[in-house]
Design a binder for these strands. Sequence first.
DNA 1: CCATACAATGCAAACGTTTGCAAGAGTGCC
DNA 2: GGCACTCTTGCAAACGTTTGCATTGTATGG
Lengths: 337, 337
Amino acid sequence: MKKRQITIKDIAKALCISPSTVSRSLADHPDISQETKNIVNAYAREHKYKPNALALSLRTNNTKTIGVILPQIVHYFFSSVLSGIEDEAEKGGYRVIICQSNETYEKEVKGAQALLEARVCGVLASVAKTTTTYDHFQELIDSDIPVVFFDRICTGILTDRVVVDDYAGVCSAVEYLIHSGCRRVAFFGSPAHLAISNNRRMGYEDALRKNGLPVEKELIKICDNYTEALRLTPELLSLPNRPDAFFAVNDETAIGVLNVVKAKGLKIPDEVSICGFTNNSLAEVSDPLLTSVDQHGYELGASAMRLLIERLKGVRDGDRIVSKIIKTNLVVRQTTR
Amino acid sequence: MKKRQITIKDIAKALCISPSTVSRSLADHPDISQETKNIVNAYAREHKYKPNALALSLRTNNTKTIGVILPQIVHYFFSSVLSGIEDEAEKGGYRVIICQSNETYEKEVKGAQALLEARVCGVLASVAKTTTTYDHFQELIDSDIPVVFFDRICTGILTDRVVVDDYAGVCSAVEYLIHSGCRRVAFFGSPAHLAISNNRRMGYEDALRKNGLPVEKELIKICDNYTEALRLTPELLSLPNRPDAFFAVNDETAIGVLNVVKAKGLKIPDEVSICGFTNNSLAEVSDPLLTSVDQHGYELGASAMRLLIERLKGVRDGDRIVSKIIKTNLVVRQTTR
DNA sequence: CCATACAATGCAAACGTTTGCAAGAGTGCC
DNA sequence: GGCACTCTTGCAAACGTTTGCATTGTATGG
């Protein structure tokens, strides 16, 4: 009952010719007569011949497959990155196989092993939060599989990378706040042990300095989720000299701020401006609509994939590692002046 | 410079034994002496031997790979489904390769072809909005590749499916609204040409009927996005006999309603109750927090994958198609009494 | 001492392709 | 008629595995 897919051998047998002739006919090889080609192609089409990608890969030692290792598909940012990766892969004729680490080191390692066994041509990776040792990535590279890190890069390893320009994104957003008249901008950021956090914090501080404003400890909080924002925002608002703007390191947090500010009866943006980061769907349904820094996740994924494909094609010269930076841009909506 | 992965043949040559012995040693075959096994395993570990999944698949005619066809990875619902699929696949030792259709028929067909070429063991699919003909899915089935549809099922084809219990989800949510004292519940739904839309609409109507309330045309609108909600909600609120509750078919729309209601100065939930559908991250950051029907996307994906694996193992008997229904549940928050 | 049994290993084919090389048929030229 | 050429096709090996069967060597039993 098990129906096998039809193979080149089957076609050859049916038409009483050799497999080589069939193969060459399908590939439109000049050595084969037009007549034979016609017969073969007709038969192949009629019987819905599909080349066996496995056999082909084995033969040519080229799987046309890219592995992706990322923390969590469900996060808006990563799913948009993945979407960009997928689209660009398809354009280049590559398949994509994915492994989510769920932020654990162990699953990340398992994923890398699986990709090695699948003989992928290259790997795109964003490292898990709990990862501190990088042997599994090094093993990929040692096996001559190009690795391109995206967003959460791996500092210990010399390899291509493409990251979001957090620093500039935050800096220009904060400058925008300042130029619109804000004088006391609060900053809600992530814990400092991620490289990304520091970049953002520096962007904030530099924007203040560039514009002659003081960096005040009491306006800087570690706060990167909604509930924390609900807890910390009132504290800041009740300062004798309350902030007139908030910059939050993600949109959930910014929405938390927004809800508190509204509840206190303060006018947005006239009395308090708010700016988020990521620009996910939240920003498009809040009231008022949230101004946010767009990270261009899709573009980042697409860009990483393009870079990887260039590597595979050997367009890029050998050792020179390239590090691309995806520019963010501020999407101004209604929470800023 | 190109470093090949080490193969069984390499090990055989290095140890001056035959490839078969190496293969059997690695598989812990009883025919092989413990001594030989030890030597082989040691050598393999030292040189980081990784079995070539391609060759294995070709040999055994089993790729241990599942194909997934879905409309858009970026949507919260689909990315959570995908996450469930991925996790469950990993448990079962399957790889996952994904194709997004971007809601277009053409890409869906291309995806199906690619999966056929990759000789996947089975396929999980959710059909694109623009798809009206199903030959590409039929071709998979004709090639003896089991297909399990999830969420957006394909009515024309007899096959396993797992869907969200839209009808019951909407019905019980609306009943909840009624039992909490609401008498005029408005319904914001999708255009009727999707099967899903009708189920939801029926759930709404039946809930009203069961509780002796009239189904009123003027309370039923086609409206499934944020901006539409901003346009239509004021209309309903200015009716002489305005609704005291809104049920929306997704969370974006519900948030739109919420924002309008708040702006009008009506109390939520005392004067107007609101209930959404999907229970995505929006529901957890709105003010007040949105009551919503959780679709359990992750569980749906995991369940579909489990069903597919059972099929592949032959646990399920041949022709009987199974259709699983994932129960929704109402997450009551602050927009309902 | 021979037959038998058993343990350990090797041979070779197969999975579905591609491809270098050889081979056959036909044609034109001297 | 023989030679060199072109045009078309086929043979066989290779990619990395697994596995049925054959082979070898050794020990056991009569």
